[in-house]
Design a protein around this nucleic acid. Sequence first.
DNA 1: CTGAAAGCGCTTACAG
DNA 2: CTGAAAGCGCTTACAG
Lengths: 341, 341
Amino acid sequence: MQGSGKTARLSDVAKLAEVSPGLVSRILNEDPTLKVRPETRERVLNAIDLLQYTPHASARALRNSRTGLLGFALHHVNDPIYAQLVETAQIAAAERGYSVVLLNADELMERQGAFRTLVRGHRVDGLLIQSGFAADDHGLREIARSVPSVVFNADRTPGLRTVRLDDTAAATMATRRLLDLGHRQIAFVGAEGATSDRRFRGYLDALEDAEVAAMPMITGGWDASSARAGIERYFAAGGRATGLVVVTSTSALGVHAGVISAGLSLPDDVSVVSIHDTWFTEHLNPPLTVVELPLAEIGRLTVDLLVEQIASPTDGATVLEEPAPRLIERGSTAVRVGQGP
Amino acid sequence: MQGSGKTARLSDVAKLAEVSPGLVSRILNEDPTLKVRPETRERVLNAIDLLQYTPHASARALRNSRTGLLGFALHHVNDPIYAQLVETAQIAAAERGYSVVLLNADELMERQGAFRTLVRGHRVDGLLIQSGFAADDHGLREIARSVPSVVFNADRTPGLRTVRLDDTAAATMATRRLLDLGHRQIAFVGAEGATSDRRFRGYLDALEDAEVAAMPMITGGWDASSARAGIERYFAAGGRATGLVVVTSTSALGVHAGVISAGLSLPDDVSVVSIHDTWFTEHLNPPLTVVELPLAEIGRLTVDLLVEQIASPTDGATVLEEPAPRLIERGSTAVRVGQGP
DNA sequence: CTGAAAGCGCTTACAG
DNA sequence: CTGAAAGCGCTTACAG
């Protein structure tokens, strides 16, 4: 049932083409020092074709100390933003000849052994690590130092190559839009971790610029349900914000639902802007106003950086500023009404 | 910057423990025929610990003809249902000692070479293939036959191990609910592929049972935007359904938006039920009534089946019927009003 | 109870 | 211009 017998080895090709295995290998790998008779090369190429020869990945990996695998250590693929990122990054990796191994960041942080098997067992050539998510990433950073890697969403850290989007600019843009619409009671719905901190910073910058007082951060978290609970608590406790900047659109979905279930009208009583555009935002009722950040581009960039890290590791912080954040105005924002100036 | 020098090899452990490499290997792999002096074993274990020894994955893979990798060939990870599945399956795989390689089903189908490198290059021990998505999966089935694999969502096919959820039962349950609410004009919003076909069948079954006439299928597709476009076209053309059974919740999001943008009230004019519960359904406005199918369980089951396939390939169709589909009634369904009996 | 040796399939200096 | 040989790090019959 499984295919047509054994797969051909290099030596089979060599035998068929009546040359040595070494020569076949050199032709396959396009050894630049090699000067082979066109006629011989032809014979070898034909044999490869005839036998459907494909190099044995493990044999190559052992010999070259390169697996051709990139590990992606994520907290949740089941988040639309990261799913989108992974999808792009997987394609970018494939284009560069790498496959992507899906790793569980939490397991890697918690289980000492999981990390050891991965790194000391030479299972991947490099690691993309999702950071900036939990308050404490120490475990992940340890890991990042022991293998070529790119830490996604972390702040600049000595010894690490970090990459991130321009979170601050995005949050500033979102907040400005609410200010322009006349809102003066604007709160930030945030979460744990460095990414949220940077976005909160952007929110503060915009308010400071406009000389409008900031409000205490509302704790929302990174998922819809916790954000919804957070915002329901906020309004139940008498919260008075008329404009909400939400750390990410996944959470904004919950905020959206929470505002409505709190008996408030969206956008008439409360306007909501969030960060990241994704497949569901335009289909909400009302649709979500967002600041779009270049997810596809950061996916490619991250893979490129990781491939560079494998070639020669360097530290430093990369921030993708182009294409710039872009406001997409939809129905969840409106001119502020009521309560006088 | 990268870790503390070279990693230890088996021979280093052997040297330190003053035994042969073979012995270390046998202890490591718990060779049952091995009777070693406790004292010697202790020495070896200590050496392993001291050197932080971890077997070299590629060397093992070459020797054992097992990579420890499972390939997941998907169309879009960027779909909440599949993202959820992948997340569960990744964890299940890790528990069984396998890592997951993310593969692009479309690339695998289209690029002859991508598939050859994968299979003939011994890159994975087995393949989980997402099927039932496009109308024509022939390419994927070819692949499935040449390597231990499980084809997810396909109908029973000779020579293949298929696994799927009880799509028909789920759709029947959804349709019944609309019937119970008094709806008589019920349409199915479907998509391409076997999965949608089975759900359509379930819809037909329920109507037949109730002796209610079926309506032509509305073409929605597997994503929110195309489903929205489909439903907008439908109502613009004078479609008269008061109840909609949607093939999956991702599409239902678009249907939800489309019903509203068509100027109809949800659920008063049109009730919507869809298949699969996921993180966003309860946060829509109104929240989505769905039939929940056991996604986490099918993720585990699929990995288990795949691991079995690797041990010894067999064909056959597995349908996960337990836990049974479950109706979760939310705000997108209501008793049918207006237009007399 | 433990060791020596061959071999998994490749690549690459080193010869000629 | 091409070949023979060693070796990447492991495992496993085969001896003893």
